[in-house]
C-alpha cells in the first residue's frame, strides 16, 4: 500500500543536532506560530534532529538536583503535546536512514519513520519548504 503524504502549507526540514544552537527552539516556535495562523505543517527531521523524538528520552529530562520539585519536559513530551493538540494539521516525520545510522531507531509512536527515498513525496505534498539547518 502506498503511503499518501498529507498535504501541508509548510514543511520544516530540520537538520541539526540539539544542544548546539537554538535551531530546535526556533523550529518549535515557528511551527507553533504557523499552527496559530491555521496552517497545516509537516516536519521532516533528518540527521541528528532525529534525536528529538527518540523514545529513550522518556517524558522528562533528568532531575535537576538543585530543585527536584520542578519537572523539565523532554523534547519527546513537547513534540507529542504539539501533535496531540493539532492532529489534523501537524505531522512529524523522521528519516529512517538517519535514525538507524545514529542509533535512534527507537522512536516514539507518534512520529512516522519514512525512507529517504520517499523524501521528495513530502516536498511535492507541501506549498513551501523551510530548510532549517545543515548537515
Amino acid at each position: 500500500m502506498v503511503f499518501a503524504v498529507r498535504h501541508t502549507d509548510v514543511l520544516l526540514k530540520l537538520l541539526g543536532a540539539p544542544h548546539q544552537n537554538d535551531l530546535v527552539t526556533s523550529a518549535l516556535r515557528l511551527a507553533q506560530a504557523l499552527l496559530d495562523e491555521g496552517a497545516a505543517v509537516q516536519v521532516w527531521a533528518c540527521g541528528d534532529a532525529t534525536a528529538l523524538t527518540c523514545a529513550a528520552f522518556g517524558d522528562s529530562k533528568p532531575v535537576n538536583v538543585a530543585d527536584r520539585t520542578v519537572d523539565h519536559p523532554s523534547t519527546v513530551t513537547l513534540i507529542r503535546e504539539l501533535l496531540i493538540a493539532y492532529p489534523e494539521r501537524l505531522d512529524w516525520y523522521v528519516c529512517r536512514f538517519c535514525c538507524a545510522e545514529r542509533g535512534r531507531s527507537d522512536q516514539i509512536a507518534e512520529v512516522l519513520k519514512r525512507p529517504p527515498s520517499q523524501f521528495w513525496q513530502h516536498i511535492r505534498a507541501t506549498d513551501k519548504v523551510v530548510a532549517m539547518g545543515v548537515c
Binding site: 540539539p18 544542544h19 537554538d22 527552539t25
Partner: peptide, 8 residues
C-alpha cells in the same frame, strides 16, 4: 545552545 532541549 538550545533553550528548549537544555532548560536547566
Amino acid at each position: 545552545r538550545g533553550a528548549v532541549e537544555t532548560q536547566f
